[in-house]
Amino acid sequence: MADAVMVPDISRTVQKWRSKPGSLIMALHEIQNRYGYVPRNVSLQLAQLMNVPLARIYEVITFYNYFRLEPPGKHNLSVCMGTACYLKGAPALLDTLKNELHVEEGETTPDGEFHLESVRCVGCCGLAPVVVANGETLAKVGVNAIGGLLARCRNEQKED
């Protein structure tokens, strides 16, 4: 992605948030929503436009689990490891996904197709265990549903 393309986008974000105190985190949310992560060159621009040191921005990004410095995969799978999901078998789901995809938590497959991570409760505990696949919350996921889930993701990309 060329820098030139990004400038108009983030200047709008900056305009919206610069006048409001303490809104660095909100600006970062907008950026991550747009790019899927917070690219370094965007952080550099943000620092200039919001007139804050780059270190301040990185200090914040690295404190909060939610912000990413690396691009996500094409398909993002988050296994909920909150208490309810943990008790209902989430660790086995995570292990299965690690084995199937040959990645650890927080990693992306070398072809960039899948990114695997764990989250702490998405508030759907009544239907544990839960996996969030590309933003969609899947309820009562069994280990034997994992194969189908991965196949669906792979097929989707063939279609488009």
Binding site: S23, I25, V60, N65, V119
Partner: peptide, 25 residues
Amino acid sequence: VRLGAGAFVCGEETALMHSIEGRRG
């Protein structure tokens, strides 16, 4: 509305206020 960003400790009130101020929680 202000958003959290995945830090449990930000539920603690003084950390939460730091977070709204745009700082580490």
